[in-house]
Simulated assay, not measured.
Amino acid sequence: MITVLGIGPGNSYLMLAGTQRYLEDATLVIGSKRQLSLFPQVASKQLLLPKLSVLRELLTTRLDDNVVLLASGDPLLYGIGTWAFHQFGRARVQVVPGISSIQYLFHQTGLSMNECYFTSSHGRVPDFDFLLMHDTIGMVTDDKIGPYEIAQAIVKRHQHRQVIVGEMLSYPEETITTYPAEAVEQRDYQMNVVIITNA
């Protein structure tokens, strides 16, 4: 069985109760370097996350084992849980939810998630004409289409929006900044998600 374990946005105090039980029962724990560093108590059964093609081959040989695949945030909100379901089917995969970084940012800013449209720019080009028809958008970003590129798409369409950028959410270095779209800086943003609202 593959357990895709949501571990929240980063800080251990935001992990859901029961996380430790899944780790203790696992024969193998797979995750990124950052994710694995949160669980030194299971260091002897950790494996650094490989490329997805390699991961698929590995998991195919371990379907009778109790493998935990760590997922930042919530595994089914633009996370690896969807990939696992597609590769192995629901009979061989269980997903344990976690608090997503988008959810966390909404709560930190006191904004309601009602009527929000959730999306991601990770590895793809969003349809900004469609997205910006919505009043509130929560977006997972990547290093190609991040806060600055999103803001430029807003400006290009002559909309007046606020862009809320959450960086390093739940970590000591957490930074949450609200910009008018035209003022978003062109710089590197660390582990960020974005909320777009009406100005």
Rank of each mutant, 00 (worst) to 15 (best):
P75H: 03
I99R: 00
G79M: 04
G98W: 00
S100D: 06
I99E: 03
G81D: 03
S100E: 03
I99M: 01
D65Y: 01
V96L: 00
H86K: 15
V68S: 04
A71D: 08
G81Y: 07
L77D: 06
G89F: 02
V95D: 08
F85H: 12
T82C: 13
L76F: 12
L70H: 10
R92Q: 14
Y78C: 02
Q94R: 14
V93I: 05
R62I: 01
L69D: 09
A91R: 13
L63H: 02
T61D: 07
V93F: 11
Y78E: 00
G81C: 05
S100H: 07
G73E: 09
T82P: 09
V68Y: 01
A84E: 04
D65N: 13
L77G: 06
F85Y: 13
D64N: 15
V67I: 08
G98I: 04
F85R: 08
Q94H: 12
A71H: 02
T61E: 11
G98F: 06
F85S: 03
L69P: 07
R92C: 11
I99W: 06
T82F: 14
L77K: 12
L76P: 05
N66F: 11
P97K: 02
R62H: 13
L63G: 10
V95L: 07
G81R: 00
D74R: 07
T61N: 08
T61I: 12
R92E: 14
T61R: 12
I99V: 13
T82A: 15
A91G: 15
R62P: 10
G89Y: 02
V67F: 08
V95I: 13
I80C: 11
G81T: 01
V93Q: 10
R90G: 14
D64P: 11
G98K: 01
L76H: 10
Q87E: 14
R92F: 09
L69S: 09
R92S: 14
L76S: 07
T61G: 04
F88E: 06
Y78P: 00
G89N: 08
